[in-house]
Design a protein around this nucleic acid. Structure first.
Ligand SMILES: [Mn+2]
Ligand SMILES: [Mn+2]
Ligand SMILES: [Zn+2]
Ligand SMILES: [Zn+2]
Lengths: 148, 148
DNA sequence: GTAAAACATGATATTGATTTTCAATTTCAT
DNA sequence: ATGAAATTGAAAATCAATATCATGTTTTAC
């Protein structure tokens, strides 16, 4: 059993909540999918394991997972939210392919440092940030026709 | 009359559309407000000039303004979209105060350069990006109680 | 000038994701 | 077992964004 499951369990216990079978299924699918999932994605996957699981339950459980510190919300400029692993994952930003939708996780310490400096310059106390670069990934870039 | 109004007018003409009184009002309010406005913000402001203007018209006009190249959409992590001036404004990113909502416009050429490099490292062809740093602005940071 | 065509408007309806409500069920400590 | 508390799935509510539609207003064709 992953350590994350303990974290979630402890979080639930601390709030007087229960680790039900539905929550187990949803958590495990989330943990085993190293991807940026929407509520609906997770709902579809969860239904495969348990044909009776409800959308609301998936939604509520994902919210709990987020509150427990295991997940964070990410926004790739679509209309739906996505979630990614937080526990044991270092901060990173994304390169997002506008063609295939793939999200590459990246981290540049020099940029991070300059972001701090930039904030400082304005007397601003940063608490978090996000940076997304949109464009074509390696694969999609190759397939693109050359400019005329 | 601002040059932007001509840009918008030419855009409309090019599409066989008309520069109506409503569109004039909405455009002028948008141009005169150096701010990051939501459709609803702009609707409220427009109603002050013309009590009969409809929400749908504001929405449609803002869409046209965007298509004409005068505005672009920005996302400050709220559920509603915002729009800012694009014409004659250089690319910039934002420091967003999580307390008062103020958005400071910033630009760091070193960061921009590193973003290019970062993309290159992954064979990624960037076309645009966004970077938002959330935290407390100078004012709000001062008012914050010191940690215990 | 007049009539048809094209466009614009504001009210209203629809959409789609998210979030809440609610009655029924399950869990768990006595 | 019993009662309190938590959970569930379906359905409804919410809310911004968008589409529809009947009514006006130009513009164009004759
Ligand atoms: Mn990620
Ligand atoms: Mn701006
Ligand atoms: Zn791609
Ligand atoms: Zn502030």
């Amino acid at each position: 059993m992953k350590k994350e499951a303990d974290v979630f369990f402890e979080f639930l216990v601390g709030k007087g909540l229960k680790f039900t079978s539905q929550r187990k299924i949803i958590l495990n699918i989330f943990l085993n999918t190293e991807d940026h999932l929407s509520v609906d994605d997770l709902f579809v996957l969860s239904r495969r394991e348990d044909e009776t699981i409800g959308y609301a339950t998936v939604h509520r459980t994902l919210k709990l997972i987020k509150e427990s510190g295991l997940a964070r919300e990410v926004d790739f400029g679509e209309k739906r939210k996505r979630f990614e692993h937080l526990f044991g994952h270092k901060h990173h930003d994304h390169l997002i392919c506008t063609k295939c939708g793939d999200a590459i996780e990246v981290f540049d310490p020099k940029i991070e440092k300059l972001q701090e400096k930039l904030a400082q310059k304005y007397g601003f106390k940063p608490s978090f940030h996000r940076m997304e670069i949109f464009g074509l990934c390696k694969k999609c870039g190759k397939r693109e026709p050359h400019p005329v």
